[in-house]
Design a protein around this nucleic acid. Structure first.
Lengths: 193, 193
DNA sequence: TAGTTCGTTCAACAGGCGTTGATTGAATGA
DNA sequence: TCATTCAATCAACGCCTGTTGAACGAACTA
């Protein structure tokens, strides 16, 4: 493994690129794809706009790099524990502000290309949830759970609903637990014969 | 009450204005605020771009008129019935495609000015729900219910999640009923002393 | 009918955008 | 040491945008 000296050209480049990527993530999150200008990203990174183009090729490509860097939440384990895992993940994402994920979220609703790119990640997340649900309509149930989480994240971080912003995440999760449990764990006992 | 002849100048204007407003609603819904151009709206309405400016003053003003025209859902009645009313409203909005409401929804997540404008309407909706919930934390519960509905609408109509698009709304509502009931009607019996 | 109003079009402007190509200068390697 | 590489800047291009003001012609009024 090579450890380049800290001021080598390669290292300098890596740092600058990371700085641009970070500035871009924040900018796309704060303003959305269309309102974000390459000039603004460059300026926030303390760099010329041409350099951003030189490194990332185009605004679309820069954007793709940003949403590719967003982490994909993981769900696994037994049916009973999956619910707690989902709720725990939601709790932490309600408490902090996961900028990268929220950037993807906002962009999905704005940028057609982001929608399909992020749609794949969402599908994987849903599939993970569905695997933990012992029911015929597991996929639909997983989609609903996923939609509920989405709605809470949107309300809390994008719309910034007063109630949710000031609420204790623990309290929210406690209210939400029977809700998610009824979808993930409770057997279907009210359907058609 | 005056009934102008159908081809009078005033009547012609009213029709053209309505045509522009309709085209704008569709355009803002399909593309979001930033990607929608006045020229495109004008073209869809079979009209010159200058005329849109002449009638509505600015793009922002045109946009304001569009989101002002969106209907605000109503919830009222006893606690027990409120849930069914909420679910029924959701069911119809899952089945059809309420373009005006969805335009507001998408814009809230894109346009900062729309967010505050539509935020007020959302708050009124939440307050209506909260009134029907017999609990100390009724406001938080209402906010969560509102977020759940939001998430389902976003997933179904904006992200177009496969599972939700192809699902039977009745089935979705059936799965969701215990969920919403646990928030709206079930007394709080697991909280701190 | 003559004059005015007003719905509508047209051409153009100013500004901001993504993008490009030439250019500079420091780090690099033979 | 000298030629090369490459991070970084700069000025400029072409395009598209919201917006404006002059112009035309049909509908209205007296």
């Amino acid at each position: 493994m090579t450890t380049p000296r800290p001021n080598s050209r390669a290292e300098q480049r890596r740092r600058t690129e990371a700085r641009i990527l970070d500035a871009a993530t924040r900018a796309f999150f704060a303003a959305g794809y269309e309102r974000t200008t390459i000039r603004a990203v460059a300026s926030a990174a303390g760099v010329d706009a041409g350099l951003v183009m030189h490194y990332f090729g185009s605004k679309q490509e820069l954007f793709r790099r940003v949403i590719d860097a967003a982490p994909v939440p993981e769900v696994s384990g037994a049916p009973g524990q999956a619910t707690e895992q989902i709720l725990a993940g939601l709790a932490s994402r309600l408490a902090s502000e996961p900028v990268a994920s929220l950037t993807v979220l906002r962009s999905m609703l704005t940028n057609p290309e982001a929608a399909s790119a992020a749609g794949a990640a969402t599908a994987r997340y849903q599939a993970q949830i569905a695997q933990a649900i012992p029911a015929d309509d597991a996929n639909l149930r997983a989609a609903i759970i996923s939609a509920i989480i989405l709605g809470l994240m949107v309300s809390r971080h994008l719309i910034k609903s007063d109630e949710l912003v000031s609420a204790d995440p623990v309290q929210v999760i406690r209210l939400l637990r029977p809700c998610v449990l009824s979808l993930a764990a409770r057997p279907d006992h009210s359907g058609p014969p």
